[in-house]
């Protein structure tokens, strides 16, 4: 019996360590090739160069162009998702009948379950042609990719924010009603401030998701790294560049190959940072209600 217990214990430990080891391994691989990359390309160029053209004869490695693309699509997506997501959360929490809330929440979460390739296709074949009727826009552009990505991340914001609003003690809400607040005032003056840390976490997770999103931007935004903040232009994000290179035939060990890792670790740094911020906020927030 004792032996059996021990074996199970060791097995569980092994399973737990595997996930940690894999993470550490990924970081190591990224770091190693990134290190080699910076043997050939100066870090200053990486930050300041205005072009990103590792596949051309005249090679430039200015990550700024890819960051601009990522930033642009993410800002558009978040700009769509925050107002819609928060409105949904407030409506479901404060106004919707209980039964409706129960049914609509899983339905909303389906939005996040649609394969991203479908979204990408939707952006390219529906949203872009639609936008073309009104504005002069490239066939591949940041705007339609960002808009569709925004729809995709709505449930991240609406669902997590609603959970946070729901967790606000009923006694606080009653206190507000007792003071003569309307439902809208209750939401904006009491429940939202009380749930603010949860709401911020939801927004950060959505941003993190948008930064890391690949398929939608690879399909609909194009693959032309451009240092621009014009949403109608063709751009490339960090993720779509990685897709482009890994699906092509790049020689192992070449500078193009190594540039993948430099781009990858940049992406990793951003999402890692955002996830940590949200973890930090979450921890503070849990203390408050204990």
């Amino acid at each position: 019996m004792k032996v059996k217990e021990m074996i199970i214990e060791k097995l569980l430990f092994l399973c737990a360590s595997i996930s940690v080891l894999i993470t550490v391994g990924i970081i190591l691989v990224l770091l190693l090739d990134t290190f080699e990359f910076f043997q050939e390309v100066s870090f200053v160029d990486f930050i300041t160069d205005k072009k990103w053209t590792p596949m051309f004869k005249d090679k430039h490695f200015g990550i700024g162009s890819l960051l601009a693309g990522t930033f642009l699509t993410t800002v558009i997506a978040v700009g769509v998702a925050i107002p819609i997501g928060l409105s949904i959360a407030i409506y479901l929490n404060e106004f919707a009948p209980k039964g409706f809330r129960k049914r609509i929440k899983p339905a909303l979460e389906l939005l996040a379950a649609v394969p991203t390739i479908v979204y990408g296709f939707f952006a390219l074949t529906v949203v872009t042609p639609f936008l073309k009727q009104f504005i002069d826009i490239d066939s591949f552009n940041a705007l339609s990719a960002g808009l569709v990505m925004g729809i995709m991340i709505i449930p991240y914001i609406s669902s997590i924010s609603e959970d946070a609003l729901y967790a606000v003690p009923k006694s606080l809400r009653e206190a507000a009603y007792g003071m003569g607040t309307t439902r809208l005032q209750t939401a904006f003056k009491v429940t939202i401030p009380a749930a603010s840390s949860g709401i911020i976490v939801s927004i950060i997770l959505a941003i993190s998701r948008a930064i890391g999103e690949t398929m939608i931007v690879a399909i609909a935004a194009g693959q032309k790294p451009t240092l621009t903040l014009d949403p109608t232009e063709t751009i490339a994000t960090i993720t779509s560049f990685i897709v482009q290179v890994t699906t092509g035939d790049v020689e192992h060990g070449s500078i193009e190959y190594k540039s993948l890792f430099a781009a990858g670790i940049t992406l990793f740094l951003f999402t890692f940072m955002l996830n940590n911020i949200s973890y930090f906020i979450k921890k503070k927030y849990q203390e408050k209600y204990d």
Binding site: P169, S171, L172, E174, A175, G178, M179, G180, P193
Partner: peptide
Amino acid sequence: VEELRKEVGMVFQKPNPFPK
């Protein structure tokens, strides 16, 4: 009803100050 509750205040079983 909001006007009424300003006229008729309420204190609850458990102290429920706002987190302000």
